[in-house]
C-alpha cells in the first residue's frame, strides 16, 4: 500500500511539474511568429562580420611573416 501511494505521489509530481512550468512566461508568441529568426539572423551577421575581420587579420599576419622569412 505504501509503495502504491509513493508511486502515485511520484506520478502526480511528474504530471504536475510540466504544468507548473508552463505558467512561467516565455517568449512563446515571438517564436511562433518566427520573429526570433530575425534576431538569430542579425546576431549571425554581426558574428560573421567580426570573425571575417579576425580572419583577414590572420591572413595579414601570415603575409607579413612570409615577407620577413623571404628577407632572411
Amino acid at each position: 500500500m505504501k509503495m502504491v501511494s509513493k508511486l502515485s505521489l511520484l506520478a502526480a509530481m511528474l504530471v504536475a511539474f510540466p504544468l507548473a512550468a508552463q505558467e512561467v512566461e516565455m517568449a512563446d508568441s515571438m517564436r511562433a511568429d518566427g520573429k526570433i529568426n530575425v534576431l538569430v539572423a542579425i546576431i549571425l551577421v554581426v558574428l560573421a562580420g567580426l570573425i571575417g575581420y579576425i580572419v583577414l587579420l590572420d591572413r595579414k599576419a601570415r603575409r607579413l611573416e612570409k615577407k620577413l622569412e623571404e628577407k632572411n
Binding site: V24, E25, M26, V40, I43, L44, L47
Partner: peptide, 19 residues
Amino acid sequence: VYTVLAGLLWDVPRLSILN
C-alpha cells in the same frame, strides 16, 4: 555559430524571474 543558433532557438527550462 552553433552557440548562437542553438542558444537562441532550442528549448530551455522554464524558470520564473529568469524567463
